[in-house]
């Protein structure tokens, strides 16, 4: 659906490129994530893809057509949610949404959308009175009001409490289930891990690794089983190699004879893998 080839970009006031020749493809119906620390080039890449930033080098195509050939009808088929809440604060939530709704040919049902994010009750409140979480939820409504084919979400759960973050993640999954495609940029590992079909690790404008979270865990994770059992009022931890675990007599014996408290696979987190691959922490920079 989106194909990015040899993308390079330099801000006019910078001496060097902030995006250094990246290639990736987003398939239709996929949730694709860009994971990286602040300043890695995630938002810049997104701004290029949504045609806010021009003068890039390389090629980007959307549905087989170069994005530079698209006019403003490009925005009829995409929805964008910026990291920061962006609304007219002295207008009500409904006034904000209705204003933007009229600018599109396709219109979603606002009531359903606002109810889904729990804002329908507050539709007549001034947005200036909203909490940050409410404003972010309104951002999502705004991004979805033209029933887009593709969603661009910049740090979508940043600033949301766990309950609202869960609602938002469910909405993203529902959007994908209905055939939508999503591009997410985030520095929050759990968002990417829970939502994305594929993820690219980006640092200093370069993609260091790209695959599904599962494959990355298999590729870089530690293949082990950790067992905790109780003996003489003490918790004892034992680690077994994952390979041929079913034939490991010591492991089987332990399961049969000991008072087991926990069993976990020694799965490495995406954040650990990110650090291992890039040498940079997600909260760095």
């Amino acid at each position: 659906m989106f194909k990015v080839e040899g993308l390079k970009f330099k801000y006019p006031k910078n001496e060097s490129d902030v995006i250094n020749g990246i290639d990736f493809e987003i398939n239709k119906g996929e949730i694709f994530g860009f994971l990286g620390p602040s300043g890695a080039g995630k938002s810049t890449t997104q701004k290029i893809m949504i045609k806010i930033l021009e003068d890039f080098r390389g090629k980007i195509s959307y549905n087989g057509k170069d994005i530079t050939e698209y006019k403003d009808d490009f925005y009829e088929s995409i929805g964008v949610s910026f990291e920061m809440p962006i609304h007219f604060s002295k207008m009500t939530a409904l006034e904000n949404i209705e204003f933007f709704l009229k600018l599109y040919k396709k219109n979603a049902d606002i009531e359903t959308l606002m109810k889904r994010v729990g804002l329908w009750e507050d539709k007549d409140k001034m947005v200036g009175e909203f909490s940050k979480g409410m404003k972010i939820r309104l951002n999502i409504v705004r991004a979805l009001l033209n029933e887009p084919e593709m969603l661009f979400l910049d740090e979508p759960t940043n600033g949301l409490d766990p309950k609202n973050a869960m609602i938002l993640k469910d909405m993203i999954r529902e959007f994908r289930a209905d055939g939508g495609t999503v591009f997410i940029t985030s520095h929050i590992m759990s968002d990417i891990d829970q939502l994305c079909d594929r993820v690219a690790f980006i640092v200093d404008g370069e993609i260091k690794e790209m695959d599904s979270p599962r494959n990355l865990k298999i590729k870089y994770g530690k293949r082990s089983m950790n067992v905790e059992y109780k003996e003489n009022n003490e918790t004892i931890k034992v680690e077994f190699p994952m390979d041929n675990i079913g034939k490991n007599s010591e492991f089987i014996n332990l399961l049969q004879t000991k008072d087991i408290e926990t069993i976990h696979s020694g799965e490495t987190t995406l954040e650990d893998i990110f650090i291992k691959v890039t040498g940079v922490g997600l909260k760095d920079e």
């Binding site: 009808d73 995409i78 962006i86 040919k105």
Partner: peptide, 14 residues
Amino acid sequence: SESTISTMLVTPVT
């Protein structure tokens, strides 16, 4: 102050 122009940029408006 409200950065609303950014939102306008990603609509079909010229």
